[in-house]
Design a protein around this nucleic acid. Structure first.
Lengths: 139, 139
DNA sequence: CCCGACGTGAAGCTTTCTGTTAAAAGCGAC
DNA sequence: GTCGCTTTTAACAGAAAGCTTCACGTCGGG
């Protein structure tokens, strides 16, 4: 089972915005695309979805662009994942009466495990990890 | 992110075989398909994959069919999932150098969470749950 | 007004998923 | 051996989803 590239792009974009969050300035789509190595035209669509979920916000006109709607500590990987796809781990069995209930329960167990893990990872954590990594190179 | 119907079918098939495991008799593909509500022609392909991973085994000829290769307690949902798809939660970032390492670590964390949960659920557990459910109706 | 940026929808392409079909091969019974 | 039953394997096709690009609409500021 493949995690879609879209989620990866979305997460990278939020990381990129999180790094610039302290400056308070908006980041243009193209800059963000270059920085995170994602196709700009696709990134736009993802950013719009992220905006509708109140994860990022946008500024129009010259000097416009995107910035985080909330501090990185209040945005979890689960938020981004659920924004990009619907639910993480959507069970196909929901609408199939042939699926035994015990199996349905098992799928739900997997889903909650995933959700809880993803919700436990905030982008502040990811920033800190990245900083630690950079420091280790410095030493 | 959608869990594929294939995994659902595979799990249902193994549950069906697990129920018949005590009898020691082989179950024909068509019987299994009827019982688990899966398209027989598609189920065949899934069963072959399950066989190659030593989850089920087959008997040819008249009175032939499929049966579990191991007792239900030794088969986990993770086994079936990994058989049907490659890895559960394959991160697309693996081959993309632009993906920051901290994000890669996060994807791995999600993957291991999922794997551990799925490996913790054996089909014996599922059978017991189903039996409990039946008993509750009985009361 | 005009430029530069976001916003939106649609189109094309590729890949994966799902399901079907048909032919090959093994096993047991007569 | 041959026949009927089953699994096995390969090939195929339609449907759906994912990815990407493009073109045009919209808004804000100089």
């Amino acid at each position: 089972m493949k995690l879609s590239v879209k989620s990866d792009y979305a997460a990278r974009a939020v990381i990129g915005l999180a790094k610039h969050f302290p400056t308070g300035a908006a980041l243009k789509v193209e800059e963000l695309a270059n920085e995170s190595g994602t196709p700009a035209n696709y990134l736009v669509q993802i950013l719009i979805e992220l905006k509708s979920r109140n994860i990022v916000k946008s500024v129009r006109g010259k000097e416009g662009g995107y910035l985080l709607a909330r501090p990185p500590g209040e945005i979890s990987l689960g938020d981004v994942l659920r924004c990009v796809h619907g639910r993480v781990f959507d069970p196909p069995a929901l609408h199939d009466p042939h699926c035994p209930s015990e199996l349905r329960a098992a799928w739900n167990k997997l889903q909650t495990a995933l959700d809880e893990t993803a919700d436990g990872i905030t982008f502040q954590h990811l920033l800190d990890e990245g900083a630690d990594k950079a420091k280790m190179y410095y030493i």
